[in-house]
Design a protein around this nucleic acid. Structure first.
Length: 268
DNA sequence: AGACCCACCCGAACGC
DNA sequence: TGCGTTCGGGTGGGTC
């Protein structure tokens, strides 16, 4: 499941592959994947100016609008030779001048949308990027002050910090030595400073490791996550904590599967 | 407004 | 073996 680091890696590869290429046409095999088909058709014939990222959204800057792609859980891009057969999970094919690009998505949760006005599209939906200099302990404390949600839920809230998903939310809680059930209004200012540092550290480490495995992906632009080698808690229920060897506990926070160490991670 | 629940999907894992 | 059931993941929309 792609989070910010995986999206970042896909963006870097895509930018190399499609920037300055012309989108001739697109074929859609699952209607719901494309939110506004007519506006996508209107971009036929335009060149991709640049590929970038905002939160977990991939942005293709075209000449008159932006194509936004959210991979959700399993969205992946595959470069295809011209007219090469798609597989059964290719729901959209983008036809470029001298190659095709397939959008594959087994669970059909991914979404592609065209927007003329990114400001409006993201509106209050997305908060700060992790490396935005406005992301400070004061920013987080102010966002958290009036809220009663659990820390895990707060970290997953895209309108606070954009890009954190289930895996890294668990890792961030672990490194902060805070229970994912901690109520955010009780977290002191100095802990929010740690939160800024830890968030950047965890995401950067993941981006670096994703970047180092690009070579092993030939036709695929999908990333499966070599980062798992360094994971401390996510997916390790009932296994010993890397710090204290206590068995990690699996629980549910905000309807999300959550793993944490009951010994190391305290509730304030 | 904030908090919470559920639909959207389907493959993998599990139960019988 | 095979068939049925459960689970999970991010987001948006609905309700209270």
């Amino acid at each position: 499941m792609p989070e910010l680091p995986e999206v970042e890696t896909v963006v870097r590869i895509l930018d190399e592959q499609i920037t300055h290429h012309r989108l001739i046409d697109s074929s859609v095999y699952w209607d719901k994947t494309i939110v506004n088909r007519d506006e996508l058709i209107a971009l036929n014939g335009q060149q991709v100016q640049k590929v970038s990222r905002r939160g977990k959204y991939i942005l293709w800057q075209m000449e008159t609008a932006t194509i936004l792609i959210h991979l959700r859980m399993e969205g992946k891009f595959y470069k295809l030779a011209k007219n090469e057969a798609r597989n059964k999970h290719s729901h959209v094919i983008f036809h470029f001048d001298d190659f095709d690009l397939a959008f594959n998505d087994t669970r059909k949760f991914g979404r592609i949308e065209v927007s003329q006005d990114l400001e409006h599209f993201f509106n209050h939906k997305l908060g700060l990027e992790p490396w935005d200099e406005l992301l400070t302990k004061e920013y987080l404390r102010n966002k958290a002050r009036s809220r009663k949600v659990h820390l895990k839920t707060f970290l997953l809230d895209q309108s606070v910090i954009a890009g954190i998903g289930n895996i890294y939310a668990d890792e961030i809680c672990f490194k902060l030595k805070l229970s994912p059930f901690t109520r955010v209004h009780r977290i002191p200012l100095y802990k929010w400073e740690e939160c800024v540092d830890v968030t950047r550290q965890v995401l950067q480490e993941a981006i670096d490791s994703g970047g180092s495995t690009i070579r092993s992906y030939t036709a695929s632009l999908g990333i499966t996550g070599r980062f798992q080698l360094r994971i401390h808690v996510y997916g390790r229920a009932n296994q010993p904590c890397h710090d204290c060897h206590t068995h990690l506990i699996r629980s549910v926070v905000g309807q999300r599967s959550t793993v944490y160490c009951p010994q190391c991670q305290k509730r304030l």
